[in-house]
Write a protein that binds this DNA or RNA. Structure first.
Lengths: 303, 303
DNA sequence: GCCAACTTATCGCGAAATGCTATGAATTAA
DNA sequence: TTAATTCATAGCATTTCGCGATAAGTTGGC
């Protein structure tokens, strides 16, 4: 036989109450069950825990000692359960979000702020890494989830659509392209182009756009960071095709965004998480918050 | 439903082993039982503890956290059980023995020494108090047991006979009573008598002895402590009637003990413990040791 | 790309335990 | 002495538990 928690709880109740029948009422159980439980527990421990006549019940020395330890054990167990419950109820937790630098800079901060308002106990960490590393981080568990644009074919990765984002033209205020009308891809032929380096997903889409107009893509500048590209555009060194949400990074800078059509090229920004792993309560909550937030953020510019 | 220790043990085994089927072998249980236990535990906690495919089992964040606490809880419980086992096996414990000063001085030290040799883990405390307080101490639990001579009629007190002890005459070496033959009570008439005060049980027996010879009891000195009485005898101020075991206190002093007959007055030295209370393992052990020790100590002089 | 092997989940059944009611035994208080 | 209270025991119905069999799903090899 083996000790059970129920036995220990019965023991503590009897010890505290000083009576079997009294404790049985409190435990909502019949008194014989208590007698049995204590008997079994004593047999297991090899010591008598109570001195009991039909009239008085009091702890033996061994019982007193066991009461101390048992109470501590029960309390700790309850604390452990409570802790896990807190995780489940999102009162507490940890969340690591992997995102490319631009998203990490212009979308995440506000989304996280909203998230922390709703779940103050969950601490959020950002891993601002390259797109390739995002998938890898999520796969190996370094990040709980990631946002960005990814191939749909990734293995072991679950996708949750957040928002569609169209490519947009960014030009300086003095540029002839700056106006109120949408710009066509074909109009870009005569302007020096600032692009991202070839490992960027955006670069690929830009290439698609140029191909659709049968224009050759001859970048004047190739940079890794979107913010760098915007700075170059601001300096009048060229125009850039960037995601709509780069607008947020261009705010307060002398750069304007123009709709870019024929074709409209859009890509889906998704939240990813490992499909094998269970979706932690924190990730579930974050997924909802960022989806609502992303849709509020960009609908008028993105569509 | 409620969490059980079995569930926790199953959880820890699976967590450590990283596999249900592997853990099931180690726990000597079938794999479906494990699946069920973990499922129930997860339902109770409201969180998934493992990410499991049919091929891999690994802890979730919540699972990792719960593993920490659960392991600590189990370890502490096992420690508590172990502690109580030690009490039961007399590897550890506490024992308070109440005894009148003389017994505490001349019998207990050696008995306790022997006891501690056999049960090194049990700490022994002596409460050297008056005879009246001994019964009271045992009754209210301040002492686990007591030794001495007590009325058989004491309520709520269990008696275990240790040894019979006869009254003995103590005289200085120059006394005419000093010789090799037993002394009769009637011979005491002509000598100044050192007695204990009236609250002593020995004093009562001395009175009985004098009455049996129809001699008047006219103490020359009345003292509370046996050792004081022996000192007075040694100084040649009188003779004293004391228990045989007072011989041990008279060793190395110029006082001799003589058998005292017509009548031989003996009294039973008993060990007492509270009858309501359970006899703790330590008291059981001590009872045996002191009984054997007492019988070895005094048979030739006492009988 | 399909098959074989391995692992976990589910199902059904039999055995064990659990807990309750009724009853007994013992002690206290009136 | 009796009545009342309290813990222990017995018998019984119910629930739970754990096992075997089987299903479902994933991985790795061919």
């Amino acid at each position: 036989m083996k000790i059970t928690l129920k036995q220990i709880e019965c023991f503590l109740a009897v010890a505290e109450y000083g009576s079997f029948s009294g404790a049985s009422k409190r435990l909502n159980t019949a008194q014989p069950a208590l007698s049995q439980a204590i008997k079994d527990l004593e047999a297991e421990l090899g010591v008598r825990l109570f001195d009991r006549t039909t009239r008085r019940v009091e702890l033996t020395d061994a019982g007193r000692e066991f009461q101390q330890s048992a109470a501590k054990v029960i309390e700790e167990l309850e604390h452990a359960v409570e802790s896990v419950h807190e995780l489940a109820e999102r009162k507490r937790g940890r969340l690591t979000v992997a995102a490319p630098p631009l998203l990490a800079a212009v979308v995440l901060p506000q989304a996280i702020a909203e998230f922390r308002r709703r779940f103050p106990g969950i601490s959020v960490q950002i891993a601002d890494v390259g797109t390739e590393q995002i998938v890898e981080s999520v796969r190996n568990g370094k990040a709980d989830c990631g946002i960005g644009t990814f191939q749909p074919s990734e293995e072991g990765i679950e996708r949750v659509a957040l928002v569609r984002d169209s490519l947009m033209l960014f030009c300086d205020e003095a540029s002839p392209l700056n106006g109120s009308e949408p710009v066509c891809w074909s109009e870009l032929a005569d302007y020096p182009l600032v692009t991202l380096t070839r490992d960027s997903g955006i670069r690929l889409l830009v290439e698609v756009g140029f191909e659709s107009c049968e224009l050759p893509l001859k970048p004047a500048f190739e940079v890794a960071q979107v913010t760098t590209a915007i700075a170059l555009v601001e300096a009048g060194l060229g125009v850039a095709v960037l995601p709509t949400y780069a607008l947020a990074a261009a705010r307060y800078r002398k750069v304007n965004g123009r709709q870019l059509v024929e074709p409209v090229i859009s890509r889906e920004i998704v939240l990813i998480h490992a499909s094998g792993r269970s979706v932690s309560p924190a990730v579930q909550a974050f997924s909802q918050v960022i989806r609502r937030f992303a849709q509020q953020l960009t609908p008028q510019e993105a569509r």
